[in-house]
């Protein structure tokens, strides 16, 4: 099934190659369960492109983050997107970082991507992975110490288990069949609600314990397609000095507060921040709360309609109750 989509993807790219500057997609990484982003610029490289549930990265950041892949006048850049990634692209268009006619969007419906750490956790000892194959909702891993078979659902990323937009919301061409979401839209914030039923002390304790693992590598920030300050983030400025270099909980929390509050009403819940965290901190959970708030207060969902203005970048003089 994945090889068919990969084949179709390569054919599609072959066809559009003459009209585009480059194609941003995925290729095999250092083993079968690790995929990495690739920018295809010549036809000979098209065969590198792949699609399977290990294609975890959201590629939309490469369209805007320096040194970005920017097309020359009158040309386009093609980008492969999953459902969640397509919302990031829309959000970038919304905020004026991208022009719709500069990009060619190859949408791929996605039934969930795999968390490599969850796979490794299943192997008794870390060892060399020879082959990995997904068939009928199960992952088969052949490694140096034996064979492991794991139901796919158990190794999906948390973001995928709560996905309600598995199909690209914007695209020029769609490859593969439409898939149904993992959960109903009403259930989207049930984890947030459950957490809020805990006492304030418990919540504070949870964050104190969880965030104390943070090493402030800023991967969550840099992987976020909507963190567009890049090298000018206030977390790293000396003047004004918001965050110190001290590895204290206060500074860590402040950094995550900066990240989250700057994304309030903008975050598309692609979950990249959480996926890239080397210390497995559920960073996206903070943003989920803010999205729950903006949905409730302003009935707004980021990255769906490119004509809307994010709620915190505008106002409504007639607002009551606020």
């Amino acid at each position: 099934m994945w090889s068919e989509i990969t084949k179709k993807l390569q054919e599609t790219v072959q066809n559009i190659m003459p009209q585009v500057e480059a194609v941003i997609g995925w290729e095999r990484g250092f083993n079968e369960i690790r995929i990495k982003p690739v920018v295809i610029k010549k036809e000979g490289d098209i065969s590198k492109l792949v699609w399977n549930p290990f294609c975890v990265q959201n590629l939309s950041g490469y369209l805007v983050k320096s040194p970005a892949v920017i097309p020359r006048e009158g040309r386009r850049v093609a980008i492969c997107v999953k459902g969640c990634d397509s919302r990031s692209v829309t959000a970038l268009i919304q905020e004026g970082f991208l022009k719709r006619d500069q990009i060619f969007i190859i949408g791929i419906p996605c039934s969930g991507t795999v968390d490599w750490r969850k796979v490794m956790k299943r192997l008794e000892r870390s060892s060399v992975i020879h082959r990995a194959e997904i068939k009928d909702g199960r992952l088969m891993v052949e490694h140096a110490e034996g064979v492991e078979e794991i139901p796919l659902r158990e190794i999906l990323l948390r973001r995928c288990l709560r996905c309600v937009y598995p199909n690209p919301t914007v695209s020029d061409v769609v490859i593969g069949e439409t898939v149904s979401p993992h959960i109903e839209k009403e259930d989207l914030y049930k984890d947030v609600e459950a957490f809020e039923r805990k006492s304030l002390d418990e919540r504070r304790k949870f964050w104190a314990e969880t965030l104390s693992r943070c090493i402030r590598c800023y991967a969550c920030r840099n992987a976020c397609p909507l963190c567009i300050c890049q090298d000018w983030c206030i977390a790293e400025r000396r003047d004004p000095k918001w965050v110190t270099q001290k590895p204290t909980l206060k500074d860590i929390l402040l950094f995550h507060g900066i990240h989250a509050l700057h994304l309030a009403g903008r975050c598309t819940e692609c979950g990249e921040c959480e996926r890239v965290c080397p210390m497995e901190i559920p960073v996206m959970f903070i943003k989920e709360k803010l999205n729950e708030t903006t949905l409730r207060l302003f009935s707004y969902e980021a990255g769906i309609d490119s004509n809307l203005v994010p709620p915190l970048l505008t106002f409504n003089p007639h607002e009551t109750g606020i």
């Binding site: 950041g61 490469y62 402030r216 590598c217 800023y218 991967a219 840099n222 890239v276 080397p278």
Partner: peptide, 13 residues
Amino acid sequence: AESCLSCGVCTYV
């Protein structure tokens, strides 16, 4: 390094 995110993971680990 085209796909690098410029984060500090590699250096911190």
